[in-house]
Simulated scan of single mutants.
Amino acid sequence: MHKQTIQTSTNQYDVYVGPGVLSRMTEYLPDHYHSILVITDSVVYPLYGKALVTELTKSAEVFVSVVPSGEASKSIEQYYQLLTDAIEHQLDRKSLIVALGGGMIGDLAGFAAATYMRGIDFIQVPTTILAHDSSVGGKVAINHPEGKNLIGNFYPPQAVLYDTDTLTSLPASEVRSGYAEVIKHGFIGDASLLDDVLHTDLTQPIEEERLADHLQKGIAIKADIVEADEKEANVRKHLNFGHTLGHAIESELGYGAITHGEAVAIGMQFALLLSEAQSDIDLSSHAFAKWMADNHYPIHVGPLSPERLLQRMKKDKKSENATVQMVLLQEIGHPYVKNIADEQLLGLLEKFIRELDG
């Protein structure tokens, strides 16, 4: 079992990564709670929800809310229903919300916890590779039709309990999605991690030790950044490498059309090409494009309007004065933030989309 502690401005919490965590969940609870609401989705609940409820019932009264799987559930309607569920189950400030699932569930359940009675405890119980990133750092949110994660808060969990046994059930698309965030951490913070991931075949089962090593290194990179800049005033923006265009693609295609990580992978490809053009250096963009192709990342995602993507990028919460901010790389492990003028960005997007279309 691997453990690391993350310090925030309001608390510190432990992140446990290893097999068998779900079967011993009560041992890792950070406090005693008389009632617990487990929030999960329709795919995860049949796989792990019932066993978790049985385990948690040893220490508290347990309720369950199940939302439809998929990014579309990160909505105002599902959020409101979860608050209604919490009220009907008479949760109070001594209650706990457990987010059992991937990044969507973590964001949705965390935002419900952050706003119910002005904030009650919650813990993250990730069941996807992608959630190694989203479960750490305290960002919680829901989507708006005009943009991803525009309604949210900074609200750290009380613990992150990551059972790696749950990752064996992931479909190929979720493996791709999760590894986009793993390789992102390599690009912005660890050249050796980047190199190892570029030599990882996602179409085959990944050795348990290698997967755990990738997850722990990714979490450590994010933890260092979050501790230095919890509220995204400066260096935390570096974690958005690939996300400015990735979020715009997700919004434009409709949430759930492709996974978050698949969209971010395309966004990273664009950011790498832009970085290389800015600095005239080799940032492994060709190796990354080959890795994406070899591992069946969706590249041809249908007709995309550069003008509409630009407008969505300008609505991104990281934009300033309606100017798009892009996270670029000076070299591997050295990201920086640059404002890109509309005219320049539009021309680059038009060229990039033409190349995506083949």
Rank of each mutant, 00 (worst) to 15 (best):
T10F: 10
Q12S: 15
Y16M: 04
L29H: 11
D31G: 04
D31V: 00
H34S: 14
V38C: 05
V38P: 07
I39W: 09
I39S: 03
E55M: 07
F63T: 04
S69L: 03
A72G: 13
L82N: 13
L82M: 13
E88H: 14
A99R: 03
G103F: 04
A112G: 06
A112V: 15
T115F: 10
V125P: 09
T128C: 04
A131L: 02
S135L: 09
G137T: 11
H144L: 15
E146D: 11
G152R: 10
P156Q: 10
Q158F: 02
V160T: 06
E181F: 05
F187T: 07
G189A: 07
L194D: 04
H199K: 15
P205R: 01
I206T: 06
E209C: 02
K217C: 08
G218F: 08
I221R: 01
K231C: 04
V235I: 15
H238M: 04
F241I: 08
L245C: 05
Y255S: 03
T259L: 00
G261N: 06
Q269E: 02
D280K: 15
A293Y: 11
D294E: 15
Y297S: 00
P298Y: 09
P298N: 05
V301M: 05
S305F: 12
L309C: 01
M313L: 10
V324W: 11
V327H: 08
L348H: 13
